[in-house]
């Protein structure tokens, strides 16, 4: 009698095999060299800690070249983009990212304009409502001409 694995167990083993294979895939990703472009995607989002207002990929100093190398090393070791950013923020402060990571600061940065816009819209709506309620609406002018002022059209006609 041929000894066969029951189909269920065979499937389970196959699953285990594939699972193991998938788990090792990140290790394969590490052996692929990190290109300059991969580093630059991240360097574009980070700011040079010591130069005023320059992104890490535009900055030409030795220091920035060293930090781009550090990014490459970290990416090679398998860190995700967010992890690299977090390392930089932890070491150099919030100023190295274009939009603060800290939620309170982010609320300050992005929240304030939104609040202002909201209140401006409310003020605008209230103002228009007030105008509607005020004196009657003037009758719409008849002019559909492309010249602004009806008086001017009249005068121009007279002058010709």
């Amino acid at each position: 009698m041929i000894n066969r694995f029951p189909p269920a167990r065979l499937r389970a083993c196959a699953l285990c095999f594939w699972l193991l294979l998938w788990l090792t895939l990140p290790a394969y990703a590490q052996t692929e060299p990190i290109t300059d472009d991969d580093v630059n995607v991240l360097a574009n989002r980070l700011y040079c800690p010591v130069c005023p207002n320059e992104t890490l990929d535009a900055c030409r100093t030795e220091a920035c070249a060293q930090w781009r190398e550090d990014i490459r090393v970290q990416l090679q070791a398998g860190a995700t983009e967010q992890q690299v950013i977090d390392t930089f923020v932890a070491r150099f402060g919030q100023r190295v990212v274009g939009n603060p990571q800290d939620p309170a600061l982010r609320a300050l940065a992005v929240g304030a304009p939104i609040l202002l816009a909201g209140s401006a819209v409310i003020v605008g709506v209230l103002t228009f409502a007030r105008w509607r309620g005020r004196k009657g609406i003037e009758t719409p002018t008849h002019a559909a001409s492309s010249v602004d002022d009806p008086y001017r059209t009249q005068i121009e006609r007279d002058l010709e």
Binding site: N53, T55, Q94, R95, V97, G98, N99, P100, L105, L108
Partner: peptide
């Protein structure tokens, strides 16, 4: 941010393009 929390922040292209 600097006055209240003593941290320097940068609002860069990311912020303005939003």
């Amino acid at each position: 941010a600097e006055l209240t929390t003593n941290t320097d922040i940068t609002l860069g292209a990311e912020y303005f393009e939003m």
